[in-house]
Simulated scan of single mutants.
Amino acid sequence: MPERTIEFGKYGARGIKGSDAVARQLDALAGFVATPVTTRRGLMARLHYLTRSDHARAAAREAGLTMTDRTLKAWLEGWRSPTKKNLERIDTAYRAVRRRNVARYLLARLNARGDTRVELHPLNQSQVIRTRQRVVEFRSLTIRHWDRIVEAWAAGDMQALDDAWTDQIVDLGSEWGQYEYVTNVGFAA
């Protein structure tokens, strides 16, 4: 059984951790607000999402966004603008709350038929000298249980997501270590 990659990129290979690619794909499926938080429209969309109900406000506070009702009213009515630090907090809280809200729906879709086909695009070895290149090809994998992956993603726990993802790619057999780092992971829900 291969060990985990310790010195990725030592010989010039390029890619990202497979778990990061999965998180990126789940983020795309979550459908975040596309307008940046630095614009008025993006800020308003996030603030309305975070304050539309008592439950949403509680989740925003839990995600680290603390503000008084007076400050919120000033932001919503345009009397004041949030500082750069507060804009970052608003965006971070929005993403955390959105992930939590969408997680159950995504989990149901990914587990719906009992399996979801995942495409693994191998790492980029164009900068690696020929004698050091591995034979790595496009692979696909069927994942039947997404619970741990989606749960870790929703919580924002990247270590747990990496562990859950590694447990799934072990199903590739003795070659699983070649797919710990990839250029892309694709799946649909």
Rank of each mutant, 00 (worst) to 15 (best):
P2S: 13
T5P: 01
T5K: 08
T5A: 11
I6W: 03
F8C: 05
F8P: 01
G9F: 03
G9Y: 03
K10H: 05
Y11C: 03
G12V: 13
K17T: 06
S19D: 02
V22T: 11
Q25L: 11
L26A: 10
A28P: 00
F32Q: 02
V33C: 07
A34I: 05
P36M: 12
V37S: 06
V37L: 04
T39K: 12
R40G: 12
R41P: 00
G42A: 03
M44W: 08
M44I: 11
A45N: 08
R46T: 09
R46N: 03
L47P: 00
L50M: 04
L50G: 08
L50Y: 12
D54A: 09
H55Y: 11
A56R: 14
A59E: 01
R61A: 15
G64A: 10
M67E: 01
M67A: 13
M67Y: 12
T68F: 01
T68W: 01
T68I: 04
K73Q: 12
A74P: 00
A74E: 07
W75M: 03
W75D: 00
W75N: 03
E77C: 07
G78N: 06
W79A: 05
W79S: 04
T83V: 12
K85V: 14
N86M: 12
L87S: 12
L87E: 08
E88R: 13
D91P: 09
D91T: 12
A93M: 00
Y94P: 00
R95D: 01
V97N: 01
R100M: 04
V102Y: 09
L107H: 02
R109P: 00
N111K: 02
G114P: 01
D115L: 11
V118W: 15
L120I: 05
L120W: 07
H121I: 10
L123W: 05
S126R: 09
Q127T: 10
V128Q: 06
R130H: 04
T131A: 14
R132S: 11
R132T: 15
R132N: 07
V136S: 03
E137C: 09
E137T: 14
F138V: 13
L141F: 10
L141V: 07
T142H: 11
H145T: 10
H145Y: 08
D147K: 11
D147G: 14
I149Y: 01
V150F: 15
E151G: 01
A152S: 04
G156N: 04
G156Q: 02
A160P: 01
A164H: 06
A164I: 08
Q168K: 15
Q178F: 05
Y179W: 07
V182E: 02
N184W: 00
N184C: 09
F187W: 01
F187D: 00
A188L: 04
A189S: 04
A189F: 14
